[in-house]
Write a protein that binds this DNA or RNA. Structure first.
Lengths: 131, 131, 131, 131
DNA sequence: GTGGTCTAGACCACA
DNA sequence: GTGGTCTAGACCACC
């Protein structure tokens, strides 16, 4: 459980935590039913405010990525169900488009970008969550 | 020159303007040396504050997308030169990774995502900026 | 942390702030990782509008001189990396040429001007930033 | 008489004209008593507004670089006398300091900067105005 | 507490 | 007419 958090980035800390957890799940580093560190543990380990970790956990739970069982702790959820939110899809599509355009302005060719994407899928490929 | 701005989105207004201009340039709707609407014009057209448009224009100029000529107005740059900023590249790569993971969680397959990307490139394909 | 701002000068206030911060960094008065006064603090201290300070800070961050950490404040960067922007170089060269010509018109000899330059380098010499 | 004017620069056009004239004088391209093109001539040659040229000429005359003789035209002044304006000196010194600091941030060493200065003096060296 | 965004409205320099 | 700067004051997200 190593977290890579950079307060200098303009991405909010709590979002970085969310991203990290989701990434580790996708890569299979975190397995379903696995226990996550407590809010206090994680916050002291990362040297950030407990509220920040708490907020991240809440959002992760809202997204169905984790579940907290009162008195027992927080766990990776066993049964992740995709939620087809059309607005979410639209947003992702738009973000993707924006990145493509920006990369285009930065001189990145379609081939390079495709290579990047391949790399990401390779990292998470063997551990595809298919439930 | 139709702009689509949504004040309800959590993306800042001025960034939305930036995105739109860059997208229109990439698609060829805006051609090099073409005049953009004046700050006041665009702001009244979009029903937003002139300062907001101004901020967007200034950032676009910083990125080299447009040039402003004193007392005359703002124009699409004719000579866009890519700047290889390693930090920028890293950020884009990370954003891309995040979108892929999020899309993965939303149940989007690699094939679907690749299709999306193809679509974007098709839109901007014929008008590739090649300087 | 004493700032000298002159609203009567034709140099914009926010640029004066930028210059001052960069000068203090170069002289070693401000050290890497040191915290800068908050936007509100500095603005009330200088009796200028917070937005003006904010604009200066944002530009300084863009230049890599400072970093802002969300909810914590702004700090002098610890790792300043030079960016070789050819346009920037050209501009500086031209400004320099102009000053030399103007000083020439004002009757300043090459020797005097060289002495001025020596003085500036002496001020910042011992504290050279060597990222 | 070739003028190099770039409306895209953030330096006002009329200042660019002033700079050019002064530079050409310093280099000896323009000699004392030499006639300058009329406002109309120059403005049409440069494709800029006559008012802009006029403003430049007025400022040049104020600085004593040129003289206009009603009905005859505008000429490079024969007897240029240095004006020791302490405020002007202070401003130049400050501008110089700022350029040095900025160049320092851009990774330019003292040696490089000195070389730049040498080059400028070499250009204007043989034609030093000493009256 | 921090900075970021936005608005409204003013003034100025430039062309 | 153009964009640039500055102020005053508001609201928000983040920590």
């Amino acid at each position: 459980m190593y977290f890579n958090i950079d307060p200098k980035k303009n991405v909010p800390l709590y979002e970085q935590v969310i991203h990290q957890v989701k990434e580790m799940c996708a890569k299979g580093i975190l397995q379903p039913n696995e226990k996550l560190p407590s809010v206090r543990e994680l916050s002291s380990q990362m040297v950030i405010n407990p509220n920040t970790v708490s907020k991240a956990y809440q959002e992760l739970e809202r997204q169905g990525v984790i579940v907290t069982i009162r008195g027992r702790g927080t766990f990776i959820s066993e049964d992740f169900t995709h939620t087809f939110d059309p607005r979410l899809l639209k947003n992702m599509k738009q973000s993707l488009k924006q990145i493509i355009i920006d990369s285009h302005y930065a001189g990145i060719t379609k081939e390079e970008l495709t290579k990047w994407i391949e790399e990401v899928y390779k990292e998470i490929g063997g551990q595809k969550r298919e439930n």
